[in-house]
């Protein structure tokens, strides 16, 4: 992790789903850049979370919980002017396999959760300024197989990113980062379940012009730039960070 110094000093940030993975890297980076950070998750506070980070046990998919998250930030630090909507769940199912409960979980967290959080912070940000970064996905631009509702939920994230940007300017900026394959616990588990884990890993790496999967810090670097004053003219965009994966055609015969 590289810090930009205290570029976010005296800023107040809410990062959803900061318990682990990409969200945790974002929390640590914003903290290192000088921001006061609150994060949340459905479980208990992780033991290794930095002491100065405020933790709220909450489900962003529930409107009352979103209200509690923002109210907690207000009480602990003041009104947040940075919101990173990172909380999300993945589901490996086709449309036919998806149950009503699955739908409620994925759409509830990834779509309604983002909506709930934006609705809570926007009245203040519209008046006083703020920057929202949503974690979308390359899966919202091009589909991953057997991840139907997840793919669609990320396209929703990209669409709402643009809407917030054009409805709540000029003081609010809203952008999305669309990560590709990031080596989190979730991705590692996926490889371990493959028929030939070593071959699955080698194949995945070979599909990336960068020759590797992303790290959570790669995404945190981009989020830190987007919420900083350096990105004052960046608005309404969905920026892909995927090591070149989606710049290449998915048809690479030498890999078959």
């Amino acid at each position: 992790m590289t810090s930009q110094g205290n570029g976010l000093k005296s800023k107040i940030a809410v990062v959803t789903g900061g318990g682990r993975g990409i969200g945790r890297a974002v929390v640590d980076r914003l903290l290192a850049d000088g921001a006061s950070v609150l994060t949340c998750g459905r479980g208990n506070r992780p033991a290794d979370l930095a002491a100065e980070v405020f933790w709220v046990q909450a489900d962003v998919g529930i409107a009352a919980d979103a209200r509690t998250i923002v109210a907690s930030a207000r009480e602990a630090f003041g009104e947040p002017t940075i919101l990173v909507n990172n909380a999300g769940v993945q589901l490996t199912k086709t449309v036919v396999e998806t149950t009503d409960t699955d739908w409620d979980l994925v759409v509830g967290t990834n779509c309604k959760g983002m909506f709930n959080m934006c609705r809570e912070v926007l009245p203040f940000m519209t008046e006083h300024g703020g920057s929202i970064v949503n974690i979308g996905s390359i899966s919202g631009n091009v589909s991953d197989p057997k991840m139907a509702i997840y793919n669609a939920s990320k396209a929703f994230v990209h669409g709402l990113t643009r809407s917030v940007a054009i409805d709540h300017g000029p003081k609010v900026r809203c952008n999305a980062i669309c990560p590709g394959w990031i080596m989190t616990e979730m991705a590692a588990d996926g490889f371990d379940l493959a028929r030939d884990p070593a071959r699955a890993r080698a194949d995945a790496f070979a599909r990336h012009p960068a020759g590797r999967l992303g790290a959570p810090d790669d995404i945190a670097n981009a989020v830190a730039w987007l919420v900083s004053d350096q990105a004052a003219f960046a608005n309404g965009q969905c920026f892909v960070i995927d090591g070149g994966l989606t710049a290449a055609s998915p048809l690479q015969p030498e890999l078959f």
Binding site: A165, I166, N221, A222, W225, Q230, F233, Q237, F239
Partner: peptide, 29 residues
């Protein structure tokens, strides 16, 4: 220049093959 600087730096070590629109939201609408 702010964005060029970031893309040129090692912070952007995983960013490649992308088209970075910087237009104040113009083309989002």
């Amino acid at each position: 220049a702010n964005l060029v600087n970031w893309l040129a730096s090692d912070e952007a070590r995983y960013a490649s093959g992308q088209l970075w629109v910087l237009d104040g939201g113009l083309s989002a609408q």
